[in-house]
Amino acid sequence: MALLPLPLPQAELLFDPAFLPATEADALLAQLTTAVAWEQRSIRIFGQEIPQPRLTAWYGDAEARYTYSGLAWEPRPWLPALQALRQRLEATTGARFNSVLLNLYRDGRDSMGWHADDEPELGPAPAIASLSLGATRRFRLRPRAELAHAPFGLDLPSGSLLLMRGPTQQHWQHALPKTARPIGPRLNLTFRWVAGAAG
């Protein structure tokens, strides 16, 4: 299949539910789950330090330092599998990527709260390629206050690719809510370009 547009105003979302074949997606999930140097960092909410409800890792070019939610990330060197995915995604999307944030959701209790990828180092209209491996989870988007539109939900199956670019981060927030359903692990890789890095 190919990347096809999704109908959201003030956004540019493109989606391919089967970017990777199932066998390749399964093999990548198994490989990266063990090869990646996972961390569970803590964030401060209402004055309390709490562990993030997922495991995370940051890989990229040496200059691709990134800060979000008060956490500073120094990139680990590219793993061969991540480098290969980077080249493949650049060829598919026409965008350039110098880093990837990996999130491992171990079961339905792991989640990601509402946010936009609008940190200054990503630039005003970042292209973010989100690749999903493992269990299908429901990805949600909601408009920011100035945009009168209903929230939007999208199932992200294993091997799917969602490309967010243009004004999306300015006008929409996204989240991966918890689910009470018994569900296996999901690995999400979001490739991005950190401004100011060499290249």
Rank of each mutant, 00 (worst) to 15 (best):
P7E: 15
L82F: 02
A116Y: 12
W193T: 12
E74W: 09
E146S: 13
W58V: 13
P80N: 04
A91I: 01
Q31T: 07
R88W: 00
Y105M: 07
E146A: 14
A84V: 00
L141M: 12
Q169D: 08
A22E: 11
R192S: 11
M164Q: 11
F15W: 15
L133A: 09
G196I: 12
L101R: 02
A35E: 04
A195Q: 15
T190E: 00
R76E: 11
L176S: 03
R109D: 09
W172N: 04
A2P: 05
A175G: 03
Q40S: 12
I183Q: 15
L13K: 06
F19A: 02
T179Q: 02
L82M: 06
A145H: 13
L102S: 07
N98R: 02
D155L: 14
V100D: 02
L161W: 00
A127G: 13
A148W: 06
Q83M: 00
T92S: 02
M164T: 09
M112I: 13
T136S: 15
A125R: 14
R106A: 11
G113V: 14
G113F: 07
Q83Y: 00
W78S: 03
H115K: 12
A84P: 06
S69Q: 15
P7T: 10
R41Y: 00
Q173I: 11
W58S: 14
A84S: 13
G153R: 09
G108I: 12
Q10Y: 13
F152E: 07
V194H: 10
A175D: 14
I45V: 15
T93Y: 02
R96W: 05
H171I: 08
E24C: 01
D110Q: 09
P77H: 10
A64M: 14
L28P: 10
G70F: 10
L14R: 13
R144H: 14
I183Y: 05
R109G: 15
P77E: 00
L122V: 13
L55H: 13
A37H: 14
